[in-house]
Design a protein around this nucleic acid. Structure first.
Lengths: 210, 210, 210, 210
DNA sequence: AATGAATGAGCGTTCATTCAT
DNA sequence: AATGAATGAACGCTCATTCAT
């Protein structure tokens, strides 16, 4: 019986291996420009093998997105249940996001790309991808924190919590994008990413204070 | 030389014609999924002719992006010279952007896509595209307005003007993206895009006030 | 104007050329085992060019079948209007078929294959092919000749003309198949194809005499 | 040795099992479109196992054909030794064939397909398949019956018995093909298959009568 | 200048076959 | 003996690009 179990585990490992290879390739070349050959080579497997684990390039793509999304979400799991007020939690989430972006820059990029996916006239599977990203998006957590903040009378109640939450999240992605994109500019201004992040928090949180 | 001139003008007209056709096609199907055949048909020219004016599909793509960028910039040209204070000008720019987004949603999408293009280490021409978008980005105008605001003592001087300007511009794109992406959500919250935009202005402008 | 015409004619020639190449390949290897590469090589064209003239391998296949069918039918066109009685016409048709089979053995093979196509569990386009072959099948002519024969009181009226016609046609294919398939056997029996054909006519025509 | 024997028997059983599975799959999807995976699944064995018993897909195909052929032949074994004259025996064989075609339409189709296989210069194994089908074809039995008929002075002696036999058999296949192929036509003519078969017998047997 | 026929490299996917376990 | 994971050579089809006219 240990055999069947180990086999299963090995199979999962292979799947992970392929997803990791696909991640690398997708992120470095974009989905459309990535070929199954590229991925196979990166994974050091034959192309046919990929199809043993994923039924199509698209299926593999979805798995990659899913994986990335759940990784981010996981890194935020704890925050919601901390013994902090809403503002502290929002800052914690921000820091967790930044940490994630530093640790896994490629994956953060993919998240930002995905969240603006509808911008591209994407063919086939946008709806599926949206589902995936929506289910795994941290925005759900943010909504609940904002609701808590409204209850605590810390956050203004005149704007619906979900709107506030989405705005916060989008602005969060905004800074991250800025820092990762315009690093040269930041250096030229003799600033550090940390300073940029901190002033961002100050500005936006101030904006929502009740 | 009149002849040579007219020839030149005709050539430019043809180029414009092709760019317009390409725009339509790229925006309706995405770059990768658009074929030179599609564009040729839309332009009512033969495929070979396209290569007389653009040396590759990529070259045509860059031209389209360039065109779109300069169109947005043009729509903001006047604002800088208005007899308004910095805050009024920033609001004017915001409104101009929103108007542009309403009038040419596809082109606005392409701008947002481009501004986050560097997220993908996209293959071939990212550096060229960056140049294009940077040169044409309205952020240059915003920088000058913020500098004016600092001089007017309306805007806080403790953060470098370019940083403020970039932040403002990124957040601007952020709301536009939000409105265009999450329109269903906005309806569900019984809000209108205008309300979303107005509260955005209030929040971010308040943040930078000196 | 002559230019456009000539172009059109050239285009038709190319189509013919491809069809002829495809014929060769399909008949020598069977449809499924023939590849577009094979056909392209036989036609001395690039694979892409084939798709300029035929939208798929299947489309090309149908064209080939069509061509072959109409070639056979054409070779029988005159017979129906001869000044002969039904029996003489049937013999004429038989001879025309044999002549065709001698002149274009590959194409005759394809006709026989097609007429029994429903035997194979053919996928996709059997219905289209059936239409093609039915429309072009000489059986239509045979039916009209048998009807004439019934009117002339030469052919028995107790069996419906179409049934007789189909039987005749199927038996005709039967001998052709026999001669082409079992030529060694025929030689061993010290017979000639002609003798086999003649005794066939005698037997089957005798059977339908009124 | 009992052990070795049982092993051998078991091996044969497995082979039979696989052939039966392959039969199902080949007949329901056609040879080219059937995959070893399909067959393995139908046999409830792993794909690798198939290669333990058959060295290739083609080898398996040949075995299937062989099996079908011998099944038909078996169903006619008894007839040759009946106490009937040649004509009665020929009718018996015809009826046996029809019965077989009714009971195993798919297998009958495959026989007919095979008998006209040489029409396609099919690739690989035609020669092997020919051997198989020739060895197992009921035509051998027919030849002996016709020879008996000649001796009995029932059947004309001016045409070599093998030629008559082959003609009869080919025409037999012809009707079966007709009935199975043109069933709609037969219904339209308000006929039954039985009537078609009976008139066939009448016609062809009459033709060979001495 | 303009055409459009021709090209050929490349793509996602399939599947007969092999081989380590 | 049996497995099933892995392979890799094809396949049908697409499309950016070239080039003779």
């Amino acid at each position: 019986m240990g055999v069947a179990e180990r086999k299963e585990r090995e199979k999962q490992k292979r799947k992970e291996l392929i997803i990791r290879a696909a991640e690398k390739v997708f992120f470095s070349q974009g989905f459309e420009r990535s070929t199954m050959d590229d991925i196979a080579e990166e994974a050091e497997l034959s192309k046919g093998t990929l199809y043993l684990y994923f039924k199509s390039k698209e299926d593999l793509h979805i798995s990659v997105v899913h994986k990335v999304g759940s990784r981010l979400k996981a890194s935020m799991m704890g925050i919601e249940n901390l013994d902090e007020d809403a503002f502290e939690k929002l800052v914690s989430m921000g820091r967790a996001t930044i940490e994630f972006a530093n640790k896994f820059p490629d994956q953060m990029k993919s998240i930002m790309l995905l969240e603006s996916f509808e911008l591209q006239q994407t063919s086939y599977s946008t709806s599926q991808l949206k589902d995936v990203i929506f289910k795994d998006s941290p925005v759900g957590i943010v909504i609940r924190i904002v609701e808590q903040g409204v209850k605590e009378k810390l956050i203004r109640a005149d704007i619906p919590a979900p709107l506030i939450a989405h705005t916060l999240w989008m602005q969060m992605l905004s800074v991250v994008r800025f820092v990762s994109t315009k690093s040269t500019l930041i250096k030229m201004l003799e600033l550090t990413p940390v300073q940029v992040y901190e002033s961002h928090f100050e500005l936006v949180l101030n904006g929502i204070r009740s």
